[in-house]
Computed example of a mutant assay.
Amino acid sequence: MSFSEKFLQLPIIIGMVALLIILIVYLIRKSVKVFLENMFIFDENRKETLIHFTNQATKVLGLVFFIFYMVNHFFPLENFFTGSVVVVGALALIFQHIIRDYLMGIAYLFERQIYHGDYVIINGKQQGKIEEISIRYLKIRQNDGYLYTVSYSNITELQNGTRGMRRVTESLVLNYKQNPEDAFKVIEEVAQTCNEKYGEYLLMDHNGVPVESFKFNQITELNVDLRGHRYSLTGIVKEDDFVEAGKKVRYELAMAAYENNLIMAENLDSSP
């Protein structure tokens, strides 16, 4: 068959292949959903995460299969690949990051490190609620409303707020000129103040004792963006009170920094 004849049949081929792939994707998604709905060993968050992941995976795989089929229809790929090992190696090198993202995404999913709807802190900076779990990346809705997307290979640290409780983590980045001993005294007083004023937000165990009170974790990071050191304060609170508790702790830290003339990292030329 000539190239012109293949070109004339292209719309029919595209339509048939596309419909077939859509049907297969739909059946896979439906089967997975029915299967998971009858798996009582999984909680609702786990089921929702697996269903969401399956939808993303089938979408990508369906698209990849469609592209390969159409290319192969005009230019047989077996001849191309078998005749050029160098090209295959180059393609593998080019797509190594994508492959790594896929493998790490599968690992995160099946190791149950993240669920859809979890509150996470990524690389100690971006924090928010997981809105989408793809096979290559995560999308989280930050507290400021922005949607943050990060590929799995770029995640070096992931903190996950456990369902039913959340760990408030707030910090001050202070200048190198700041005396650590003075900063320690101030932030330890802030932790004590938070326990006294906002103890109602803390998560209690069955004996009515806080699982983890507000506490000062001292210096948790050096050379933050080459500007200063990070001094952190944490505490485990009830999930429903997480946002409000974070606001209160940030206020106390800001007020303490102001009243005690702590040198913030931005004020490189200021002195105590």
Rank of each mutant, 00 (worst) to 15 (best):
M1C: 07
M1A: 11
S4V: 08
S4P: 00
K6R: 13
Q9L: 12
L10K: 04
M16P: 01
I28Y: 15
R29S: 11
R29V: 12
V32N: 07
K33L: 09
F35N: 02
F42A: 03
E44F: 03
E44V: 05
R46D: 08
H52D: 12
F53K: 02
L61T: 10
V64K: 04
F66N: 13
I67M: 11
M70V: 13
V71C: 15
F74A: 10
F74E: 11
G83T: 10
S84M: 02
V85L: 13
V88Q: 07
L93K: 03
I94L: 09
I94Y: 04
F95C: 03
H97G: 12
I98T: 10
Y102A: 14
M104Q: 12
M104P: 01
G105W: 12
G105V: 05
Y108N: 05
Y108I: 03
F110G: 06
I114Y: 07
G117F: 00
D118F: 07
D118N: 14
Y119L: 01
N123F: 11
G124Y: 06
Q127I: 08
I133A: 02
R136C: 15
L138M: 04
K139E: 11
Q142R: 13
G145M: 10
N154S: 15
I155S: 05
L158K: 07
G161W: 00
G164F: 02
G164Q: 03
E170C: 06
V173E: 04
V173A: 03
K177I: 03
K177T: 04
K177Y: 10
Q178C: 11
P180I: 07
P180M: 04
E181C: 01
D182E: 15
V186P: 03
E189T: 11
A191W: 09
N195F: 01
N195G: 02
Y198A: 03
E200S: 07
Y201P: 06
L203A: 14
H206N: 14
G208A: 04
P210Y: 00
S213F: 05
S213E: 13
F214W: 08
K215W: 08
F216M: 00
L222N: 06
R227W: 07
L233K: 00
V237A: 00
F242W: 06
V243S: 07
V243H: 06
A245N: 02
K248M: 15
Y251I: 13
M255Q: 14
A256S: 07
A256K: 02
Y258C: 01
E259T: 06
N261K: 08
E266M: 06
D269P: 00
D269G: 00
